[in-house]
Nucleic acid binder design. Structure first.
Length: 321
DNA sequence: TTTATTTGACCTTG
DNA sequence: CAAGGTCAAATAAA
């Protein structure tokens, strides 16, 4: 795509942004082709990872460009850019949308009341979404609090593998808006657990016409996917939290090389991070971080929050993970 | 019986 | 002391 083909009225930053996104679109299509050849993934997982890294780089560049300009104020959803061009415009992600706010999340960690010392240096990320998004992890609710000046209660979740694997990841989910429903999801700490849900690539899809792509930015795994509400028709909720189990799906696990390299709990977090998140800020010494990175245009069921002030208002929600 | 959720109490911090 | 975060006993659900 030549920059000279852009209308002169377009700001250069915008052109650069579009170029980056276009590049990402091409890379994503390449990735889709690779996913279509499952044997290639097994034999050449490194090159697949390379493509993922390039896509991540594209997002990084885009975010940098947007950060350096006022483009950030203009709505832009990368999910749409990830969709291959053969997806019709009206085939929007059915339910879940990650807000722009979540995409540009560089959360400055503030010292707050109630923030325990042991957590004050932990990786933090805040997403604002219009639907509750399943991030692929198994969470267990451990608390619920009424927050000052908030209409809705805040729900506290910890990783289900906290005791089993010592995973310290927690998240908070708070409804911040009624109509449309809007949620603030704050992640505290990275997962160090060996969560099977994260290492799977769905290569067979019930509906081949749906080519939407799901990329897990945290694991560098990727999924050619249907909308999950069709992809998981017989979904069993083995996790009480309401997260779908992916174990019974027709999934292909990432090679043991990749899986264990990325998620071996015996590997230090910094090692894991440097390999799995080469483009993101993270770690104990950073106060700025990007969102934990599951951008998804799919959905699944999830009865995440029982907002006692409204009781049932989440019954209709579908989640992405 | 096991596992998950609820909820009041307790802890930490500003 | 107030507010937010976590714990853990009680309860509910599978």
């Amino acid at each position: 795509m030549e920059s000279s083909s852009w209308p002169e009225s377009l700001p250069s930053n915008r052109i650069k942004t579009i170029q980056e996104l276009t590049k990402g679109q091409v890379l994503t299509n390449n990735l889709r082709e690779m996913i279509g050849q499952s044997e290639k993934i097994e034999s050449d997982i490194k090159s697949v990872n390379g493509v993922v890294v390039q896509i991540l780089g594209m997002f990084d560049n885009t975010l940098s460009i947007m950060d350096s300009s006022n483009l950030i104020s203009e709505p832009h959803n990368p999910i749409n850019d990830l969709r291959p061009p053969n997806i019709k415009g009206d085939q929007k992600p059915k339910v879940s949308e990650v807000s722009d706010e979540s995409i540009k999340t560089k959360t400055l960690m503030k010292k707050k009341r109630g923030c325990y010392n042991k957590r004050k240096n932990a990786w933090i990320s805040t997403n604002v979404t219009f639907d509750l998004i399943d991030d692929g992890y198994a969470w267990r609710k451990y608390g619920q609090k009424t927050i000052l000046n908030s209409k809705h209660q805040r729900n506290y979740f910890r990783c289900s593998h906290k005791f089993e694997q010592g995973c310290q990841a927690t998240k908070q989910v708070q409804k911040i808006n009624d109509k449309p429903s809007k949620y603030k999801i704050t992640y505290n700490g990275r997962h160090t657990c060996n969560n099977l849900q994260r290492s799977q690539i769905i290569v067979e899809t019930p509906n081949p016409s749906d080519n939407s792509i799901l990329i897990n930015f945290e694991t560098n795994t990727f999924t050619e996917n249907n909308k999950v509400n069709t992809c998981f028709p017989s979904m069993e909720h083995t996790h009480k939290e309401g997260f779908p189990s992916l174990g019974h799906l027709k999934c292909k696990e990432v090679s043991s090389y990749d899986y264990h390299t990325l998620w071996d709990p015996t590997v230090g977090l910094s090692q894991v991070s440097s390999k799995s998140m080469p483009l993101m800020s993270y770690g104990e010494d950073y106060e700025v971080s990007y969102s934990p990175g599951v951008f998804s245009s799919t959905c699944s069921t999830h009865d995440y929050e029982n907002d006692t002030t409204e009781g049932h208002d989440l019954d209709d929600f579908f989640f992405d993970f």
